Every structure is written in structure tokens, then in C-alpha cells.
Amino acid sequence: MMPGSPYFSPRLILTGAAMFGMLLALGVHILGQRFGLDLGDLWGDATGGMIPIRAAIAWWLIAAVAFGSGHITATLLHSAVSGHLPRRLQHALIAGGLLLLIAAGQAASGPSPVPTLHGVSNGMVALMLGAAMAYAGAHFALARTKAS
């Protein structure tokens, strides 16, 4: 470690990136439900034993957003701590993430297109999927920054 550079625990970066990725994945899940992307169709009554394409799209969309945002957030947090990220970019990224979460809150406040118990179970599955994928993305980002 170079003198004068602040120490920031990698576990704290990993936790923050995983939580932010999980929240963004949950926000995308809520917004996706408004567009008919229902994650619960994976275990519902499928016709002919085929998985509905909308459920597969919802699953992959949530996983990709969580993994990508966990990876990007961990990289950006590491850059911000080391002083390589401009302040304006930090503020713009925070504002973008907050706008997505605000849009998800707006979408969640209206009447839901899915039944309550079904929506709660879908939300929990999306939350767990988002947490696992965001953690994986953040872990890979921190491993890459340690290697370089």
C-alpha cells in the first residue's frame, strides 16, 4: 500500500456493491412485472412443458442486471477510494441508480398485475437471485483489481 492512500476494507466494498446490485435487480424485477415479464411463470402451469419466454427473459434480465451492477459498483468503489474517479462522475452514477430505484418505487406503488402471494414469492426469488449474482459480480471485480 502506498503511503497516503486510504485503507478501505474489501469486505465493505463487496458488501456495498452486492447490496446495490441486489436493489437494482429488485427494481428491474418490479419494472419488468409492469411490462409482463413475470418471473413466477417458471414454476407455473406451462403449456406443453415449455418454459414461457417471458419468464426466461425476466430471469436473465434480473441476473444480468445484478451481476453487471455488482461488478461495476465494486470497480467504481475501488476507483473512488483510490482517488481515480472524478467527483462529477460519482454524483452522476449515484443519481442514475437513484432514478432507477425511484422508478421502481413508483411502479410498485400502483395496483399489481399479479396476485399478492405470487408477487411476494416472485419478489423473494428475485431478491435472492439478485443478491447471489451481485455478490458474484462484485467478487470477480475485486479479484480482478487485486490481480492488477
Score class of each variant (00 low, 15 high):
59 W>T: 10
57 I>L: 13
57 I>A: 08
5 S>L: 15
41 D>A: 14
77 L>R: 00
11 R>D: 07
33 Q>W: 03
111 P>V: 15
107 A>R: 04
114 V>D: 04
66 A>C: 11
75 T>D: 02
36 G>A: 11
75 T>K: 03
134 A>N: 01
15 T>A: 15
89 L>I: 15
146 K>P: 00
104 A>Q: 02
128 M>R: 08
7 Y>S: 12
4 G>M: 13
103 A>F: 12
46 A>P: 05
107 A>D: 05
34 R>T: 11
8 F>I: 15
90 Q>P: 00
134 A>I: 04
143 A>P: 01
2 M>E: 15
97 G>F: 05
56 A>C: 08
26 L>V: 12
97 G>T: 07
48 G>V: 11
3 P>G: 09
143 A>W: 06
65 V>H: 00
95 A>V: 13
10 P>N: 09
53 I>C: 05
130 G>M: 01
30 I>T: 08
32 G>D: 03
144 R>W: 10
29 H>C: 06
145 T>L: 07
99 L>H: 07
24 L>P: 00
1 M>V: 14
49 G>N: 08
93 L>F: 13
56 A>D: 05
4 G>N: 14
32 G>S: 07
132 A>S: 15
53 I>G: 04
130 G>F: 00
42 L>A: 10
138 A>Y: 00
49 G>A: 08
90 Q>A: 10
53 I>Q: 12
127 L>N: 03
81 V>P: 01
84 H>E: 11
63 A>K: 04
25 A>I: 05
106 Q>A: 15
142 L>A: 01
129 L>Q: 03
101 L>Y: 09
36 G>P: 05
47 T>Q: 13
36 G>Y: 09
23 L>P: 00
137 G>C: 07
65 V>S: 04
21 G>N: 03
15 T>H: 05
141 A>N: 00
77 L>A: 06
12 L>H: 12
99 L>A: 15
12 L>M: 14
123 G>C: 11
9 S>G: 11
1 M>P: 10
38 D>V: 09
47 T>M: 11
108 A>H: 06
44 G>S: 15
36 G>V: 11
41 D>G: 14
30 I>K: 02
25 A>R: 01
95 A>N: 07
133 M>H: 06
145 T>Q: 05
131 A>D: 05
121 S>K: 08
126 A>Y: 00
62 I>E: 01
1 M>F: 15
11 R>H: 14
120 V>R: 10
7 Y>V: 13
40 G>L: 09
46 A>S: 14
72 I>E: 04
95 A>W: 09
117 L>G: 13
113 P>N: 08
96 G>R: 08
42 L>H: 06
142 L>M: 08
73 T>L: 04
136 A>K: 03
113 P>Y: 07
29 H>E: 09
26 L>E: 02
140 F>Y: 08
133 M>C: 14
145 T>F: 04
39 L>V: 08
76 L>H: 03
4 G>L: 14
7 Y>M: 13
77 L>V: 03
56 A>E: 06
35 F>E: 14
129 L>N: 04
41 D>S: 10
132 A>Q: 05
14 L>D: 00
59 W>M: 14
74 A>D: 00
92 A>C: 09
82 S>P: 02
119 G>Q: 06
122 N>T: 12
20 F>P: 00
12 L>E: 08
53 I>P: 02
48 G>Q: 07
45 D>L: 14
52 P>H: 05
140 F>N: 02
45 D>K: 13
55 A>Q: 05
41 D>R: 08
